[in-house]
Design a protein around this nucleic acid. Structure first.
Lengths: 274, 274
DNA sequence: CGTGATTACGGTTGACGTAATCATA
DNA sequence: TATGATTACGTCAACCGTAATCACG
């Protein structure tokens, strides 16, 4: 009567779209070609709409819309499962971490060292990936916590992928300055309004290596203030209008965990719950 | 092998928690007491954790966490279903709307009138409810669109319930002023910083009727600028620090709809997609 | 004891696989 | 014609209801 869209069907649907093939999706998911066909047929009949064009396999407009719902739903479903599973086994000694490359690695190492002093038998490991993958890994329980960074408004949490809800503990927040070649006309002037620079050429990742590019006159970059001090050939110009910071956060799920608590403590985060 | 949390089980779980009873949930959902018990047992066994304490029925800590995932998941599942179902029937003539009470009703009526001139056979209706209910009604397809209002930062969309993703078309945005009794010490002074007023007494809905209360000295209110002009006995003080506006939005799903397009057009929204 | 949750058990539904058929590049 | 999607059909798991049992107030 009210069938309600089986998530398993959604999972095969997104897989079919990703691989653009029923049979490839079947083998990846451990189904037969037939089962996949039946899944898609069930969805299409239930929703009364064609979701895929076949040969070549590609989503219709309705299919595109369904995709935008399906991915966050599946993510959240996995996250829910992973989070509750954490309640079962009493305090494992594993502490797998995710970290995006630019997040303060040295600081993480120091914090881990401090945690290990209290818990010597801790089996800690760190995997490096981009911020989005780290967030998903934390949500789905692949890792216990993640250290990520990014650009945000002051006191605002970083943006996470849709469907991912995690607790963010702010670990660091550095004001950003716009960096210009030393001879740039805007250098040395008053604070810049970012919204007046809409058509300037941007280098948006706060990677120190990029300062060389800026010095060479190839663009404008946003970097933490303190990075600029040690660089030559560039000028740091404070930003007036939309105030932005480079923010580092420890991401964790809502389920209680002594080890993660200890790590958060060691990282010395002023808490900023979401 | 990877069972994956059946949403039907989640639905009975949240119902059981809401009603604090297995049997009540069973009758509401059209199941037997036994089936509900089996649903909860399946979840608990799958997740390896006790989710509910029985007699009285209440969620454990793990159950609480699961609830926070379950509700948005179920909402989103319904939303996905509803949105795709819209693709099936070619242009129904129904236009059910939701509206929160304070949103510009006169303006809505005028816009509807204009839409009906183009489509005389349109079966339009308006249901009034609070903003959250309106948002959910739009997401789940109960209504085609919703007119809502609320307080937000300039250019920021209104906050929607978790799990609800809709397109918001800004219909109006009025700067807010703090309203004080005419004899209030802060009146006539410089712009107020809201963050300096943390412990003042608030009346947070921008309802004109409340100006009377303010005039009588019962609190401080945030209201649209232009409302203050016509009121007596109160002073409007501009706000400096966290700039806030009273925002009115037309909420709609991502699925294309000629009628809703027409309505958005008639309301004259500067588009602000999400 | 009585209300309400759990367990036992059997029937029916429906998801999946095998295999045959159809369609398209 | 070959690769790949669909349809036909049989099987088996699991979901739900009936009914008996258990437990807490």
């Amino acid at each position: 009567m009210m069938p309600g869209v089986d998530p398993r069907f959604l999972r095969t649907f997104v897989t079919v779209v990703r691989l653009a093939s029923f049979s490839a999706a079947a083998s990846e998911l451990g189904y037969t070609q037939s089962a996949v066909s039946q899944h898609i047929a069930a969805l299409e009949s239930d929703l009364g709409t064609v979701l895929l064009r076949r040969r070549p396999v590609e989503p219709t407009a309705a299919g595109e819309r369904l995709l935008e719902h399906a991915r966050p739903i599946l993510l959240r479903l996995d996250a829910a499962r992973a989070e509750i599973l954490r309640f079962a086994p009493a305090a494992s000694t594993r502490l797998a971490l995710g970290a995006s490359p630019l997040a303060a690695m040295a600081r993480l190492a120091a914090a881990l060292e401090r945690v290990r002093r209290a818990q010597p038998r801790l089996d800690a490991s760190v995997r490096v990936a981009d911020t989005e993958r780290v967030a998903v890994a934390v949500a789905t329980g692949e890792v216990e916590a993640g250290l990520v960074d990014g650009i945000a408004a002051p006191n605002d949490p970083l943006r996470l992928p849709e469907g991912v809800t995690l607790t963010a503990v702010a670990v660091a927040e550095d004001p950003l300055v716009a960096v210009l070649p030393a001879d740039h006309p805007l250098g040395g002037g008053p604070p810049i309004r970012l919204d007046h620079l809409a058509d300037a050429r941007w280098l948006d990742a706060p990677d120190v290596g990029m300062l060389a590019l800026v010095a060479a006159g190839h663009g404008i970059a946003l970097v933490p203030e303190r990075v600029v001090d040690s660089a030559v050939g560039v000028t740091g110009v404070p930003i007036a209008a939309p105030r932005v910071v480079h923010r580092t956060e420890l991401l964790r799920t809502g389920s209680p965990s002594a080890v993660v608590d200890a790590l958060a403590e060691a990282l010395g985060g002023g808490s900023s719950p979401r």
